[in-house]
Nucleic acid binder design. Structure first.
Length: 880
RNA sequence: GGGAGUUUAGCUCAGCUGGGAGAGCGUCUGCCUUACAAGCAGGAUGUCACAGGUUCGAGCCCUGUAACUCCCACCA
């Protein structure tokens, strides 16, 4: 927009988006620091996976947080996007690890730890910069200091601090339990990392012979290969069928081990055969049963789910091969009674999809009950609020039923567990500092090979990134943070864990609000994913339509917390909106002779000026209120309507005659009003569409160096003009009605006609007369207070407060006109009947609010007036 | 098995604490009106899933039903 005379006719974001972003960064507008003169506003969002590819979900995160940040900054807050980048490999680790494995065929066992990490660091370096560049394209205003925290420095310190503190309080323990084991990734998984899917399987019914007898019991199982690890068969103590057999000894088929029949409440009499084989080392329920009955735990599988030496002849086989072989052998022995089809839930690794094997294993756990209590309380009493509120139920549900959290992972990418084992005395030492000798016996120690669950360090994100455990000024100022912006699918992994960690380690909630959004789906409602190949690259969208258009799409058209389908048509709508703004601005600038932005004195303002200013002012209120409620979509829709309808379709058109008439001094007033309303509207829109608003604002008369650091408009009671709004409403209705009639009669705009307005609102319509010429194709406008002498054959239009005649005699078909008038009559009569019905209802009149009743009465009066006019026209026409 | 969500125009979705059903896209008609055809003006299209209930009044609140979605859960 360098030259006002030569502004591009079409909006082209490529022209200015990069340039503006670079300027903002250079000027340091995004920088946030401890500033006692201002109030902090801090936002936490999930960092993008450092996989080099920005996906639509993150574009959504980023857009929403950026809208809030920009808004708050314009309100004078010191607004911070929680710094740090690396997330300590946190969410990213998964992708990194997966990628290396898939692309380069690496596993934990192929490379040593050092080599492995080297690879990862290379990889991260390569993609780290790229992701930042990509974020800029969204228009992100975060001051992203990616060097600030890395896995080996700040974050590690916090992680160790937390681990040791929890350990010392007895909230972290090491124990053997059944955990979810991924035989492909060769690591333990937390409950949250397991996805359950319904799968068709079989139910094998197998005979277990009773020792020294011809008797047998039949058990039913879905996993016959675990038979190798059975150490008992259980029945329900109440089950009459099996009363006699309790305490007897069975011979485990194929293995020959003697196992007892035990009684346990856990067994459901109705399910299967009522006899359950108990495999304490390979099933969580069986594990518990085993503990109650002191059963031996026999682990029959290796880490990669092949059968180990306890499996006898099946040793070395994969679990599914072993299953086949075992079933076959049982069949040959006549011990297989039957096979039923059975569908059941199978747990799968959410990373690689491999069926998870429950395995007994020694792992580190966090004791959850003591941590969950305060975390539940914090949400109950509102210290942390979910937006929308319903997500607090999801949170509560999980928190109240939470099990201990398995935090050790047998990966090499992550924070290594700070536990050291003595090679001499076996003592376990947990330490913030690395140690080399055992504090107890002085023997040599080695550190635990395992690393922590990524979410263990993610849980510390809101405060570890601010310098905790040190008492930094940043921590003091920015913590607790204001708002977390994230998708609902991450409540358990991340949100819940940040809340209890924050409370435990800092004594405060990590954030006051959790603003949850939904998932971005493709146009068919499917989750976008790499494997489906239905992902849409935000960068391609930006290249084609601009960042503002994409942001518009992501911020509008859906309610908070609901999923959104991504349609390219919606991006086009956003782009069209930008183009509309562009051209409205172009029009304004082409007609601008002023070089300051100020509101003219009220007494110089015309009717339409007051109308648009009043409308604008109400938009300020609406946008502010809705942004404060996190109703970003409503705020933006309101701006959209105001800009497109009120400002472009009406105000600009209304003001054209004044602007174009060089002899009309009020043209200047219009220029001021155009400038004032447009530039302030750009401020309102800036959080949503930062680039186009800055570009336009810069080229309008303005104060200050950038819209980014300008003040957000404030609602001003003095700028509400109710009377003018009403008056303009009447005029606009009348104009619309004339257009409507003309369209119905197929009168082209080029055919002008005289407009005669009969009204009691003489003053209003006199002011509005000029508008009819331009907007209602009027050749001239006559305003009068009675209809005497008007050709009864003229086209007649009845609107509230006025009756309008168009002397288009030659175009009028008397029959059709009468028909239309009678239709009009019928409609009005219907309305009157409805209103009177309501008003004659005692219940309504006495119980409804006075305001509603009054409104109904006013409507009744209005409709009756209009009916009178219509009747009069009908009479006039009939007497022709 | 538990919990949550959805059901509104042809499509995708809004509809805030109950007071005459909305948007975008699509569609139809007419317009290149000197900011914009990525546009302007006008039109059509809804038993607000179903059945009860509360209320003067229900898309909205209550109860139940149906269909679809998602999350959680250790029934072998």
């Amino acid at each position: 927009m360098e030259d006002k005379k030569n502004i591009a006719k079409t909006y082209d974001p490529a022209e200015f988006e990069d340039r503006l972003y670079n300027t903002w960064v250079e000027k340091g507008y995004f920088h946030a620091e401890v500033n006692p003169d201002k109030k902090p506003y801090t936002i936490v969002i999930p960092p993008p996976n450092v996989t080099g590819q920005l996906h639509m979900g993150h574009a959504l995160d980023e857009t929403l947080q950026d809208i809030l940040i920009r808004y708050k900054r314009m309100q004078g807050y010191e607004a911070l996007w929680v710094p740090g980048t690396d997330h300590a490999g946190i969410a990213t680790q998964i992708k990194v690890e997966e990628n290396l494995r898939v692309n380069e065929g690496l596993t934990r066992y192929d490379l040593g730890r050092e080599k492995f990490l080297e690879k990862v660091w290379d990889w991260k370096k390569q993609y780290g910069d790229r992701i930042i560049t990509q974020l800029k394209k969204i228009g992100s205003s975060c001051d992203w200091d990616r060097e600030r925290f890395t896995m080996d420095e700040g974050c590690s310190k916090a992680v160790r601090e937390v681990f040791v503190n929890l350990y010392n309080k007895g909230l972290i323990y090491q124990g053997s339990r059944i955990i979810n084991w991924c035989p492909h990734c060769i690591t333990a998984l937390s409950d949250a990392e397991v996805e359950h899917t319904e799968q068709a399987g079989h139910f094998w019914h197998i005979k277990y012979p009773v020792k020294n007898s011809d008797d047998f019991v039949v058990i039913a199982t879905t996993r016959p290969e675990t038979l190798l690890g059975d150490t008992a068969v259980a029945v329900n103590p109440e089950d009459e069928r099996y009363k006699d057999i309790i305490g007897k000894t069975l011979i485990l088929p194929l293995v020959g081990r003697e196992i007892p029949v035990i009684a346990d409440e856990y067994v459901d009499k109705e399910f299967g055969t009522g006899c359950v084989k108990i495999t304490p080392a390979h099933d969580p329920n069986d594990f518990e049963v085993g503990k109650r009955h002191n059963l031996e735990q026999i682990k029959v599988m290796n880490d990669d789910a092949t059968i180990n030496s306890y499996g006898g002849k099946y040793e070395g086989m994969d679990r599914y091969e072993a299953r086949k072989a075992i079933v076959k052998d049982l069949e040959e022995l006549g011990l297989l009674v039957k096979v039923e089809d059975h569908s059941h839930n199978v747990g799968q690794c959410y990373r690689c999809g491999t069926t998870v094997e429950p395995i007994i294993s020694k792992q580190w756990f966090v004791k959850m009950k003591p941590l969950a209590g305060p975390a539940i309380e914090a949400v109950k009493n509102g210290d942390t609020q979910f937006v929308p509120e319903r997500f607090s139920k999801t949170y509560m549900n999980w928190m109240e039923g939470v099990f201990d959290w398995c935090i050790s992972r047998q990966l090499w990418w992550g924070h290594r567990i700070p536990a050291f084992y003595c090679d001499e005395c076996g003592e376990t030492t947990v330490s913030k500092e690395d140690i080399t000798v055992c504090p107890k016996c002085g023997g040599h120690v080695h550190q635990d090979e395992d690393v922590l669950d990524t979410w263990f360090s993610s849980a510390l994100w809101p405060f570890s990134t601010l310098g905790w455990p040190d008492k930094t000024p940043e921590l003091d100022y920015f913590y607790p943070t204001s708002t977390l912006v994230t998708a609902y699918d991450i409540i358990f992994f991340w949100v819940a864990r940040m809340i209890f960690s924050g409370l435990e380690h800092t004594g405060q909630v990590p954030f006051k609000r959790v603003f949850m959004h939904g998932l971005v789906r493709d146009s068919q409602g499917r989750k976008m994913s790499k494997s489906l190949g239905n992902g849409i690259d935000p960068l391609e969208i930006i290249d084609k339509y601009g960042a503002d258009a994409l942001r518009f799409t992501l911020a509008t058209g859906n309610a908070p917390g609901n999923d959104m389908r991504f349609y390219i048509e919606r991006v086009e709508a956003g782009r069209n909106f930008a183009n509309k703004i562009w051209n409205a601005s172009r029009f304004t600038m082409m007609n601008l002779e002023i070089d300051e932005n100020k509101l003219p004195p009220v007494d110089e303002l015309r009717l339409e000026d007051k109308w648009i200013i009043s409308k604008y002012n109400k938009v300020v209120k609406n946008v502010t209120d809705n942004l404060d409620k996190f109703e970003l979509g409503i705020a933006l829709a309101n701006l959209y309507d105001f800009i497109w309808e009120s400002f472009c379709d009406w105000y600009i058109e209304l003001v054209k005659p004044r602007l174009f008439d060089k002899n009309d001094p009020s043209g200047k007033t219009a220029q001021y009003v155009l400038t004032y309303v447009l530039s302030n509207t750009m401020k309102l829109l800036h959080p949503f569409m930062p680039f186009i608003t800055e570009e336009i604002w810069q080229h309008l008369p303005h104060e200050g160096e950038s819209i980014v650091i300008s003040r957000f408009p404030v609602y001003d009671e003095a700028l509400v003009f109710e009377d003018e709004e009403k008056a303009m409403g009447l005029i606009m209705d009348a104009i619309s009605a004339v257009r409507n009639r003309r369209a119905e009669m197929n009168v082209p705009p080029s055919k002008k006609a005289k407009v005669i307005i009969v009204t009691g609102e003489n003053d209003t319509f006199t002011k509005g007369a000029v508008f009819f010429e331009k907007l209602a194709s009027a050749s001239e406008v006559e305003i009068r207070s009675d209809r005497s002498g008007i050709n009864p054959n003229a086209v007649n239009i009845v609107v509230p407060s006025a009756e309008i005649f168009l002397p288009l005699d030659e175009l009028v078909d008397k029959e059709a006109e009468l028909k239309r008038l009678n239709g009009e009559k019928k409609k009005l009569e219907g309305e009157i009947k409805r209103v009177e019905g309501k008003l004659s209802n005692q219940g309504f009149v006495s119980k409804a609010p006075q305001k509603v009743v009054d409104e109904e009465r006013a409507k009744g009066v209005k409709y009756k007036e209009m009916l009178e006019k219509v009747l009069e026209s009908i009479r006039a026409m009939e007497t022709l």
